[in-house]
């Protein structure tokens, strides 16, 4: 069985092809929108995606060496995400499904991040950290749902460090040669500046930290503030994760989403997993950020369990939460 998957929830338009036997992922092609300056405007992103879409679909098929008529389904990330951007991917997916008479498979973007992580790291019943631009979630799969054990009470960790480096003039670009600008800046700092550390059970709050750090740049060395911000934010996350480990007794940690590419986070997680005697698995950079392969693979799992959606009902779902999704393969 083979599924073509389309990712189109935010900055990246991606197409991947997955199959149900080794090597599972046959191709993974993407193109990421880069604004000249400032943040993303949904209209601009949507335009970018609709321009690159045809070539990416063709490229993904040819890299996988399959024809569209030989795939068994078209998977589409219907949410969560930006409405106008979601609609670009959905339109392409519906058209392919109609024209080639393939089932259309609705995939939640977060489930895609998690399932590609489980597949490519071969993890077994892990505590999952889903760390991306929009999410900071600690979750486990239990009785057919991803149950949220902890999450941010306000902004996501990834978003917080992005905004900080942008506001102090270090970005964009946010990541250079695989390294986030917060790390580049923090490596030159060493002095710990007092900033709020807020953990509530397994939940974290980062907005007060961001505000305080921005204020601290006025009378402290910027490198020290970067260092302190990173230390505190990561320590909060690791503490919340440790609480979740102790709550669930899981023996494995799986990290997915764009922030999984962080080397400095890995160093702390390595120590945690040693201390708690658990196995640490981190999704590889290729599958950490948004990509089409993750949608294709999650779509494959869904199709195997008979999940599909009528084209007339395939509305985009900008606020679709991972815990709303029934997981029949658990």
């Amino acid at each position: 069985m083979k599924v073509l998957g389309i990712e189109s929830t935010a900055h990246t338009f991606g197409v991947g092809i997955a199959c149900d036997e080794e090597p599972y992922i046959l191709s993974n092609v993407k193109d990421t929108f880069v604004p000249k300056e400032g943040g993303m405007k949904p209209g601009e992103v949507a335009r970018h995606h609709s321009e690159v879409a045809p070539d990416i679909v063709v490229d993904a098929l040819s890299k996988a060496g399959v024809t569209i008529s030989s795939v068994d389904g078209i998977a589409i990330s219907l949410g969560p995400g930006l409405g106008p951007v979601l609609r670009v991917g959905a339109t392409v997916a519906r058209a392919l499904a109609l024209k080639y008479r393939k089932p259309l498979i609705p995939v939640n973007h977060g489930i895609g991040h998690i399932e590609i992580g489980r597949l490519t790291t071969e993890s077994n019943d892990p505590l999952i950290l889903y760390l991306s631009g929009g999410n900071t979630i600690i979750t486990v799969l239990r009785e057919r749902r991803y149950r949220i054990l902890g999450e941010t009470l306000d902004i996501a960790l990834g978003n917080m460090i992005d905004v900080f480096v942008r506001e102090v003039g270090l970005a964009p670009p946010y990541v250079k040669a695989g390294k986030h600008m917060i790390d580049v800046c923090a490596e030159k700092g060493s002095e710990l500046v007092e900033l709020p550390y807020v953990v509530k059970g397994q939940d974290m709050s980062f907005s007060g930290l961001l505000t305080a750090a921005l204020r601290a740049t006025k009378n402290h060395n910027l490198n020290d503030v970067c260092f302190s911000l990173r230390e505190i934010a990561f320590d909060m996350l690791i503490e919340a994760s440790e609480r979740a480990l102790s709550l669930t007794g899981k023996r494995e940690i799986l990290v997915v989403g764009g922030v999984a590419a962080s080397q400095s986070l890995k160093e702390k997680l390595d120590v945690l997993s040693e201390e708690r005697d658990v196995i640490l698995k981190i999704v590889s950079p290729e599958f950490a950020g948004d990509n089409g392969a993750m949608i294709a693979y999650a779509g494959l799992l869904l199709l195997k369990h008979g999940v599909r959606i009528n084209i007339e009902e395939s509305y985009v779902r900008p606020r679709w939460r991972i815990e709303e999704v029934d997981i029949p393969w658990s």
């Binding site: 929830t9 935010a10 900055h11 990421t32 929108f33 880069v34 604004p35 400032g38 943040g39 993303m40 949904p42 969560p80 995400g81 930006l82 409405g83 977060g110 631009g133 929009g134 999410n135 999450e151 941010t152 009470l153 306000d154 902004i155 996501a156 978003n159 992005d162 905004v163 942008r166 970005a171 964009p172 670009p173 946010y174 990541v175 250079k176 695989g178 986030h180 939940d203 764009g258 900008p318 606020r319 679709w320 939460r321």
Partner: peptide
């Protein structure tokens, strides 16, 4: 309210993009 807030909000996606 808290539950909705910590959750995915559409606006949150409207954040800067990062470049490799």
């Amino acid at each position: 309210e808290i539950r909705l807030r910590g959750r995915y909000v559409e606006e949150r996606r409207n954040k800067p993009h990062n470049v490799e």
